[in-house]
Amino acid sequence: MSKMEYAIITNNLTKKFNDFIAVDKLNLKVKRGEICGIVGPNGAGKTTLIEMLICALKPTSGSAKILGKDIQKNPLKAREKIGYLPEDSGFYKSMSGFRFLQYMAELGGIEKSEAKKKASTFLKKVGLSERGHSKIETYSAGMKQRLAIAQAFVADPEVVFLDEPTSDLDPLAREKVLEMISDYARKGNTILITTHILPITEKISDIVVIIEKGKIKAEVILEEISESLEELYKNTIKGDWN
């Protein structure tokens, strides 16, 4: 398999905050078109990993490539085809949902007229068509989360990083969003998703990576394991509670 078949490659990727090692020599490979679930306890380094991959944090050592582009040597190219949903996403609250999506699409390199079409399409996909022209400050927490998810996809990214995408969503919205994520991956796009909710990871992921204290504890292809993800997780993670 050639390297370009991997959408995400990290090589001994490390991030230290003073003496604290958030991500410790992490080696990860995610193929194109795969959904990779990253699970782990609080403070395991999931968000730090994503923040390094979107070039918000500079790695202390090691390297990473997104679609073959080095995140340190060529950060602009590495970010050209990515989408990102942060945990607890922010907004311009006085903007409408439609304008926010249009703005995010344009920043992602989409032309204005096309960005408007994309904004409409994704508002529909996340069930916000009717409220699309209302100000974001009038949205409920769940609506904001759906809008945040939509912005991660609106610029046609080939690799999408989703940090806790289902928080604040009701069961029905959660189903719809997971469906949207699966559909998007089926088109050959790559998704890296972090969540605390193991059944969600189990439902949509192709591979699951369990990390603790910045290190990979287990990496499994879900089709190939006999036990449930929850059992595997409990057996893998020692944690401070045990």
Binding site: E51, I54, C55, A56, L76, K77, R79, E80, I82, G83, Y84, P86, D88, S89, G90, F91, Y92, K93, M104, L107, G108, G109, Q151, A155, F161
Partner: peptide, 11 residues
Amino acid sequence: RGMLTLLISKP
């Protein structure tokens, strides 16, 4: 606002 990482993730 929590917008900075979003902006930075753009090309």
